[in-house]
Nucleic acid binder design. Structure first.
Lengths: 244, 244
DNA sequence: CAGTGGTCTAGACCACTTA
DNA sequence: AAGTGGTCTAGACCACTGA
């Protein structure tokens, strides 16, 4: 661990420690929910002071990669309903009510990735994907029509898993069954007209305006692990975006 | 400044310092762009160590309330085109191109706040608002139809300001002319059908799907200072939302 | 009780800016 | 050269947790 040089590629010690920790998180050396070594151990291992390790861990906590608990220790962040609801699900009732929607599976097949899937998921032509279509409801009212595509390589057996094994929050399954944690996502929103299938799924008229959310989910730092296009009936709900 | 008590309403010293600093920022004691006293001065004034002041300032910097410049000092954050573009303007070309749109003023009037305006801006019945309607273009193509309402009390003279004095980025005007800094915003997105006015402004068919962005802008911490509803043609653009 | 993270302090050295 | 924020260290004490 070096801190003295003033070269153009200088990184502070705490940033180097942070990088090493992220590497271990991404490589699966530690898995979701695991307890990390205590600060003094990490400090000793990396040959830096506890304060430097602390700063690195604090920054990881700010980015939701780890969770700190006083008196207990520092844990690898894991997928929680709370996080699902407030961080990854932005559709909110116009009355302000937040709720995770129930899911009904419509279809699940695998096939060769199309051009859009290759582009969004960073796949090569010929790579296989698993496609899932489902309809999600809030208060028993269908509001979301979702088309999901994931690389088959990353999720072996996902296409043959019994339907009962598909949870409402897929990201929890990705994490527990495949060790893949969704940490970030990029959403692109557009207004579109409902096609015949949307209309059937959501009980709206063909041509009705729908909010289309095109999301690419990313694992620790970069790898695209899921592409999801959701079409939302926003007559009684809205997408909430906070600019801080 | 007290740190010893372990009562239920205990706040760390750095948080108390942070609160005091925010108070001064919000009260106009320091204005946008001002240079804050150096860390040792603040430490002396508040009777805490420099490290504690540093932590408070670092957290304010994380929240974009101040800007730190090595060798120069700590400045009150001010509105910049960069911040406008990346923080407050989320409409992006489908090709990834980002650009601040040009504005064309359609109308500007003042009047008594309606129920929705009272609710969104926290006004009492009878309070006056200034209403602005404008159309905004990217690459000379109209894509945004905006209806803006602000409390007249907060912005005296805004309704009679010469039209040339209305800048493209209104928030810069709010800050420089009225000392009101927009720090946060809450946006609610829906898909709607273009009405006759939208169609005329944007050159789309009546009934075409538009993305409606309903934004309330907030000053230092809480006060609603502007309500803005934008209707966007998203055929060649999308609203970008990053979940980190 | 021992071990954990949370807070606060003090001091050293560095890099950057301005004069 | 002096002043600023940036980094790193060391040590003290606290609050919380679980055996």
């Amino acid at each position: 661990m070096s801190s003295g040089e003033a070269g153009p590629d200088f990184r502070p010690l705490y940033a180097q420690v942070q990088d090493l920790l992220i590497e271990r998180l991404a490589s699966g050396h530690w898995r979701a929910g695991d307890l990390l070594p205590a600060e003094p151990r990490l400090a000793e291992e990396f040959g830096v002071s506890q304060g430097t390790v602390r700063k690195a861990l604090d920054r990881l906590a700010d980015r939701n990669l780890v969770v700190r608990r006083q008196g207990k220790g520092t844990y690898v962040a894991s997928y929680t309903p709370e996080r699902a609801l407030f961080h990854f699900f932005h559709l909110v009732g116009d009355d302000g009510g937040r709720e995770l929607p129930a899911s009904r599976l419509v279809s699940r097949r695998c096939g060769r990735a199309g051009r859009a899937e290759q582009q969004r998921l960073g796949l090569a032509s010929g790579d296989q994907v698993v496609r899932i279509v489902r309809v999600r409801s809030l208060h028993a009212c269908p509001v979301l029509s979702e088309r999901i595509a994931v690389p088959r390589d990353l999720f072996p057996g996902l296409d043959t898993l019994p339907e009962a094994g598909l949870p409402n929050t897929l990201y929890a399954l990705y994490e527990t069954a495949y060790g893949i944690s969704v940490m970030h996502a990029e959403e692109r929103l557009k207004a579109v007209s409902a096609d015949a299938e949307d209309a059937a799924h959501l009980g709206v008229a063909e041509g009705a305006p729908l909010l289309e959310v095109d999301r690419v989910a990313l694992s620790h730092e970069q790898r695209a692990v899921e592409w999801r296009v959701s079409r939302c009936d926003t007559r009684r709900h809205h997408y909430l975006s906070l600019l801080d």
